[in-house]
Amino acid sequence: MDNNVEITLTVNGQEVSRRIPARTNLVDFVRYELELTGSHVGCEQGVCGACTIRVNGDIVRGCLMLAAQADGATVETIEGVSDSSEIADLQRAFHERNALQCGFCTPGFLLTAQELLAQNPSPSRDEIRAFISGNYCRCTGYQAIVDAIERVAGERQAAE
């Protein structure tokens, strides 16, 4: 059998088609085929959350989904939600609250935080911690990340 597949999907609003090895996972596809290197590859076993990508509106582990499975799907990476300003307030809050140091985990945290606030606009600190439990940060100790997400939740509530 052929170990390659042809796929067509929409990534950050643009349709792309590629012929790739079937074993290519989604995060490697966006990084190496599309040169969108904001999604990071950490553990490759679903533990760290650095590869978080949005597929058809929901966050997924980019290392636990094949690019072949995204054929026909709508995919958004940190570059897409950054360019559209969708998460500009989260990015500002992470920056101002020092919620990152090396930044390796940050794209995953931002996409995860955005999904949390979409589901639950005013989460408690415990709910924030539970929701981001699937993302590892080895620099900050999480306190500042929880602060930043909590602040944005408040700002968005106040703006409504």
Binding site: M1, A22, R23, N25, E44, Q45, G46, R61, C63, L64, M65, L66, A68, Q69
Partner: peptide, 26 residues
Amino acid sequence: ILAGGQSLMATLNLRLSAPEVLIDIN
């Protein structure tokens, strides 16, 4: 058989299993 893949993909990445064909049932 590949369903959600959240266990299978990790075992493939770790080469704990190496099937010749994945059947995506999604």
